[in-house]
Write a protein that binds this DNA or RNA. Sequence first.
DNA 1: CGTGCAGTTGAGCAAATTCAACGCTTGTGG
DNA 2: CCACAAGCGTTGAATTTGCTCAACTGCACG
Lengths: 222, 222
Amino acid sequence: MLYRATAKSIPCTQNTDREALHAALKKIGVPVSFHPSAEIFGENEPSQYVYDLVSGAVQTYKVLTDGRRQIGTFYLTGDIFGLERSRSHTFSAESITDTKVIAIKRSSLATLAITNAKVARELWVLTGTELQQVNNHVLAMVMTAQERVVGFLLEMARRSTTRTEVDLPMTRQDIADYVGLRIETVSRVFSHLEAVGAIARSTPRHIVLRDASKLRKFKSNL
Amino acid sequence: MLYRATAKSIPCTQNTDREALHAALKKIGVPVSFHPSAEIFGENEPSQYVYDLVSGAVQTYKVLTDGRRQIGTFYLTGDIFGLERSRSHTFSAESITDTKVIAIKRSSLATLAITNAKVARELWVLTGTELQQVNNHVLAMVMTAQERVVGFLLEMARRSTTRTEVDLPMTRQDIADYVGLRIETVSRVFSHLEAVGAIARSTPRHIVLRDASKLRKFKSNL
DNA sequence: CGTGCAGTTGAGCAAATTCAACGCTTGTGG
DNA sequence: CCACAAGCGTTGAATTTGCTCAACTGCACG
């Protein structure tokens, strides 16, 4: 299994370190599979495992008392999730598609981190990257509907292999709950982006970025 | 100088650990003072120091290309800020009021963390708490204007010594830029809260929580 | 005593939500 | 194989929320 490089934007850490981490985790973890919409862990559950996402897609979320749902993060192939300081998870996690992970016991990981300094630092980098992403999420939340959806699309494209085509594993509802909009608003933005020729849709889930520069103009901020 | 306990909600760490950290930082750091609105560090500057806030108030922020400003966090007495994984700061930091800090060289802190395991863990706890707070910030951003402002007030009250009275060090603009609303909207919510008897204002900055349960009803979520 | 800044308030407007209907695809049972 | 129900996505019209623009107050400072 070859892992996609996900930490290219962090200059102080080589991709090789990340790949070394994946390799190390593979040795001490066990493979687990999930069907779509399966709960991987629940909010407030003790956080016993860390997960290395081999294939598929996962989202973390919280359900508010008014029934609304906020999605914290989408994780794609090569991402590591469930790594939390606190004893219990602050979000729930569920598979979006058919998903394969390597589940690593926290205790095993702690042992590994002690013996392997590179692994320890890579885990530290990982949480730092997570913090940075959540900060960006806050920034996204003050943008207009268009900017949020475009930002989401560009982010997904950046994380995809092709960079110009995106296969969205999640529903419109998931996207809406991620960017903090209603499902209809997300749909309208998609339609508008297609109408002005910025994107094309073969199916609702398969998006082609026809004009990335035009797309970026819709999301000039930051 | 006695430090206020800020980590009461984290059961696995005693306040004594936090106080030990403050004491240790005081030994290896140097005291620095700032006038109001002074830049403590800038976005993208190399992060050379970590700061222990002795008195006053500090905010971190980012300025977007459209001129708007997003405030990341408000730091009050006893908080530690500037602790970042990356080589350079992702936010700017400025003093809100007259402010005294202990500035600790990153390198000194690293040395200390190696020799003192308790300090090392406390720093880890610190960043974890930060991540949790930013996650809460994302949640806040999908709430209504009232819920955001009430949430902000309750949070400030929780961090204050009295719990029922708040002396806001920041302007309405700062609050607005924190919760992602316009200054007028923030002002209107304050006025409304006062009209229904949930709060009282002697000056615009001094808020008395007259009816905390009524206040909490405005912010039922989470 | 005027000037400037912080905060408040009002009226009209724009953006996103709400409510509702409808199309497309998929899967299931007759 | 077709009928039909269910889920996902899209679209339209009315409504609501928060924003924009504007005026005005109170206070601090020169």
